[in-house]
Computed example of a mutant assay.
Amino acid sequence: MELLHSGKVREVYSDGDDIVLVASDRISIYDVILPTPIPDKGKILTQLSLWWFDQLSDVVPNHIISATDVPQEWAGRAVRCERLEMVMVECIVRGYLAGSGLKSYEKDGAICGVPLPAGLTEASKLPEPIFTPTTKAPVGAGHDENMTYAEVEVAVGPDVAAELKRIALEVYRRGAEVAERSGILLADTKIEVGFADGRLKLGDELLTPDSARFWAVDEWQPGKPPRYLDKQFLRDWSSQSDWDRTDPGPEIPDEVVEATRNRYVEVYERLTGDKWR
């Protein structure tokens, strides 16, 4: 197999007409890959994504061909996929106010050009989920930048833009419904979408602690920082240091590595109902 691309978390290999997507234990925050891995992270992301792809298969097709027809050394962390022509827009949907969305709201009263009501606070539930896309910056090429819907239309055309928005909102709505049944709030998420045979399909990963914010329903309270069950925990840890969010990133202490892994495992177990092996 030929290595086509090495991303922040995954390697992409060519194998005939297919690609093999291999998830590592690397973790990135603020578009910087940190030097310390999170044990089992690649397997958790892969297995949780496969579970979600199955849950949402009636909403939108995905790129998965096989979770078993992969080299043995990557078993559990790799999938065989269709080749997609990826859309160069990061499709993000927010149902609650957090992260960069909160900062944007505090500055402009809006996110990606979408106006929001006055008086919202951290962790507030939005009146309805909103589509807040960004650019997709290559590894080492800076940060993703917010886009308005009009800018998405210019980038990919009105028809594709409308379909991206529809898919992203449907994935979020269905994902939020499923997650809440497990006592988890899906605060926001990003998805990756690409074309195969003229159809838009989900690619990469889906509704994982790397690509979504998860909060416990019984601990959520608007106006207070939630207990994050996702990568935001690590972002908050890094903000307590003097790191300037540029490469190289800081080493992660053992206790923070363990706490991060525990959150990924907790999300997997609560959502799927299965014990992490």
Rank of each mutant, 00 (worst) to 15 (best):
M1L: 11
E2H: 13
H5V: 00
H5I: 00
S6Q: 08
V12I: 09
V12E: 10
Y13R: 04
S14H: 14
G16E: 07
G16R: 06
G16W: 05
I19W: 03
I19H: 05
V22M: 12
A23Q: 02
S24G: 08
S24M: 06
R26I: 03
I27R: 12
Y30T: 00
D31R: 04
P35G: 01
T36Q: 07
P37W: 04
P39L: 08
Q47W: 05
L48D: 03
L50Y: 06
D54F: 00
Q55P: 01
Q55E: 14
S57F: 03
S57W: 01
D58F: 10
P61Q: 01
I64C: 05
T68A: 13
D69T: 15
E73T: 12
W74D: 13
A75D: 15
G76M: 09
G76V: 10
R83F: 12
E85F: 11
C91G: 06
C91K: 00
C91R: 07
V93I: 10
L97R: 09
S100R: 15
G101S: 09
G101E: 06
L102S: 11
E106K: 05
K107H: 11
K107D: 13
K107Y: 09
D108G: 02
C112S: 15
L116I: 12
L120A: 04
L120Q: 01
T121G: 10
S124R: 04
L126A: 01
P127F: 01
P129R: 10
T132K: 12
T134P: 01
T134M: 05
T135E: 03
T135P: 02
A137W: 03
A141Q: 12
H143M: 11
N146I: 02
M147G: 08
A150S: 15
P158D: 10
V160A: 04
L164C: 10
R166I: 02
I167P: 04
A168G: 08
E170C: 02
E170N: 11
V171T: 11
Y172M: 15
R173Y: 05
R174P: 07
R174V: 13
A179P: 00
E180D: 10
R181V: 03
R181M: 14
I184M: 13
T189N: 15
E192R: 03
F195Y: 11
A196V: 05
D197L: 05
K201S: 07
G203R: 01
G203P: 00
G203M: 01
L206R: 07
L207M: 11
P209K: 04
D210F: 08
D210H: 04
A212H: 08
A212D: 11
V217P: 07
P222Q: 14
P225L: 15
P226V: 12
R227Y: 15
R227D: 15
R227K: 15
R227S: 15
R227F: 12
Y228P: 08
D230E: 11
D236H: 07
D236A: 07
W237S: 09
S239Q: 14
S241L: 08
W243Y: 09
T246E: 14
P248C: 00
G249S: 06
I252C: 07
D254K: 12
V256F: 09
V256Y: 03
V256P: 02
E258A: 14
T260D: 06
T260G: 06
N262P: 03
Y268P: 04
E269G: 05
R270H: 03
T272G: 03
T272E: 06
D274K: 02
D274W: 01
K275S: 09
K275M: 10
